[in-house]
């Protein structure tokens, strides 16, 4: 077997980042939604008018994901060429 294309190593690493991000995202989403949301409704507090569990899980969670993907795209993901070497 020939040596592995070095671009694949980058691709594999970034796919794993995708899985890891989805797992963390899920834990955040689930934790706040059901952690805070399972209390009786009378105990909810409201942030900008929205129930607290929803605000943290869906609004803050979404904003954090946006910041994460911006940072990923800027500092972590690597530029690679998609063309075959001999065609460069």
């Amino acid at each position: 077997m020939k040596k592995q294309d070095p671009r694949f190593k980058i691709a594999h690493r970034e796919a794993l980042i995708g899985v890891a991000l989805a797992v963390v995202h899920f834990i955040w989403w689930f934790g706040f939604a059901y952690g805070l949301g399972s209390r009786p409704v009378e105990e909810y507090t409201y942030i900008f008018g929205l129930p607290d569990w929803f605000f943290y899980s869906c609004v803050v969670g979404f904003i954090l994901i946006c910041i994460t993907v911006i940072l990923l795209a800027k500092f972590v993901l690597k530029d690679v060429s998609f063309e075959e070497e001999d065609m460069k």
């Binding site: 899985v19 991000l21 990923l72």
Partner: peptide, 10 residues
Amino acid sequence: YFVLLILGKK
């Protein structure tokens, strides 16, 4: 992000 990170480069 998931679709592009998983299918992405490879």
